[in-house]
Nucleic acid binder design. Structure first.
Lengths: 332, 332
DNA sequence: CTGAAAGCGCTTACAG
DNA sequence: CTGAAAGCGCTTACAG
């Protein structure tokens, strides 16, 4: 910057003002401005972002925390956030929590250290108190997915997944006549599992159907857990006739295992997933599932985030409910 | 930091030295060290990363540039790089180029501005000159995928995809008796397409088989292009009996369209993909394809990157050839 | 409209 | 083993 100032015969202050798109409060003569810009171009000068950050300006970076970049469910969300950030000339750092509280806290720490201007997170363990702490220490703007986050200073987006689960199970019972329905879950401590399992349980109870303990198979979110879970279910003395999987990856794992065991889907065993990832349409039979709209969530949350970052919103809490939709295909 | 220094009754220099894991050249008395660490914990102090960066230390951040986070092919690579970075306590920023030179250059610019300590990139347009420029201006360590990058200061990993393509086509001809073979390509200007198409062309020529112009359908990398391309191919007066798709997404798109047209795979039309993304095993018929190992590429490149960042390698160029492997399944 | 100077929060010679 | 001081590259009151 010193070089540019010297070469253009102005002070550093002037170069800085020309470059920082300063709020027009401080005017620069057109001639000076052009001279500076020409010199900047000539010397191929790019202001150092860290110095800017240090001096108190924006950091021009946001963070995303998801469980695992390998799960397709997150991609539309991540991409939407990246695209909004790109338009604002922001960089995006991305971290995986692997559904552990430990890594969620490490993400918060790296946010505190750096810091960044905003984050979009999908927390599985972080509580309102954790977020409160984060805001107090950094002033970072936060958008979160999942309605277990109720902090008044945090924007959020959520699907009505509990209700959607309830309705899907009712559909299995009333439209398809199932009475023995099982559920493949991830860790039951996750709020998201509590909601989906709660919907399942409620529909079963209302229909007067019992759910034997071994009909709820908990584990992680993986393809492999889907395979193992359905095998154990089908080996029960009284196996279920339908299975509700807490996400599509589990459902697709189940589908693969069922095919190997030479059962027919949906005749012998019906399978319903959750999320409607692209792969749900590629498997055979095509997966009946409950669609969520992560792209829309990401987009809305990112727009809200930049409103906060740009100081256009410092009071209003945004809460976007993006309803789930039941998608009937071939597996149930 | 001032607060910590004051509270612990030492100078800022001392706090800094305790915290910066300084090369043991400068010793600190154990008592002082413990006192400082206790105060750090008590005040919950986290050093500001931007100030550290500015003062010349490492920036503790690397960048990844891929074409599009939504393509499954990149996930094992991204995840592997993230995991290595995580172990080194580094943050990772990720940008999409959408296969455009414009966005590839914008990524370079944001690297220059920030800067970061290293990048892993999958360039489709960037040349050795571009990278030379980037290194000159930032000293950033670079690892790249694809053997069109030959810069002596850039580590690289690559699959032998040209040869693998050649062999797959020979297999179609010799083991499966195909004579009319088409190819679905992305933009033919991409080095990766040149290599894969080159292998295809060579196998055909060596077998004395001609490739009508309309048998090479160029477009982008999308599912939709796969669908459109195979439709146009099957409507030709003399349609092909086998199709080689430049990646699995194209192949899966082709598979879907073929199913809608009620052709049988592989009896009526054989399909071969490239990459072996997880979805290749989920579609029916299961996709015959050429496996690449992006996870291994990412891991090796990231390890090499941190060797450079930590100054353990400032001369040796690493070049990892990760051979492709033909995976025979059901679609050909 | 422009410039001189202070300061963001650290690290690192330099001195003791 | 520890501290006082300079400086990384910017931005922003303050002064003119």
């Amino acid at each position: 910057m010193r070089d540019v100032a010297h070469e253009a015969n102005v002070s550093q202050s002037t170069v800085s003002r020309v470059l920082s798109h300063a709020p027009s409060s401080i005017p620069i003569s057109e001639a000076t401005k052009q001279r500076v810009l020409a010199t900047v171009k000539k010397l191929d000068y790019h202001p150092n972002q860290y110095a800017r950050s240090l001096r108190g300006q924006k950091n021009r970076m946001i963070g995303i925390m998801i469980a695992d970049i390998r799960n397709s469910f997150y991609h539309p969300l991540v991409r939407a956030v990246q695209d909004v950030a790109f338009q604002h000339h922001y960089d995006v750092m991305i971290a995986n929590s692997d559904h552990t509280r430990e890594k969620e806290l490490l993400f918060c720490e790296s946010i505190v250290r750096r810091p960044v201007d905003g984050v979009i997170i999908i927390p599985y363990h972080l509580t309102d108190e954790d977020l409160d702490d984060l805001i107090a220490r950094t002033g970072v703007a936060i958008g979160a997915i999942g309605n277990h986050i109720q902090h008044p200073g945090v924007d959020m987006a959520w699907g009505n997944d509990g209700l959607a689960s309830y309705r899907a199970i009712r559909w299995l019972i009333e439209q398809r006549g199932h009475r023995r329905i099982a559920m493949i879950c991830a860790n039951p401590d996750f709020p998201v599992i509590k909601r989906r399992h709660g919907g399942f349980q409620r529909a079963m109870e209302e229909a007067g159907l019992s759910v034997p303990e071994e009909y709820v198979v908990c584990g992680d979110w993986s393809f492999e857990h889907g395979q193992r879970a359905i095998r154990s279910l089908l080996q029960l003395p009284e196996p279920p006739t339908a299975v509700f999987a807490a996400n599509d990856t589990l459902a697709i794992g189940a589908l693969e295992a069922v095919e190997e065991m030479a059962y027919r889907v949906p005749e012998d065993i019906a399978i319903i997933g959750f999320d409607d990832i692209p792969e749900a349409q590629w498997v055979r039979p095509k997966l009946t599932t409950i669609a969520q709209y992560p792209g829309e969530m990401g987009q809305k949350l990112a727009d809200a985030l930049f409103e906060r970052i740009e100081g256009k919103n410092d009071s209003q809490r945004c809460a976007f409910e993006i309803p789930c939709r039941f998608v009937e295909r071939e597996s149930a």
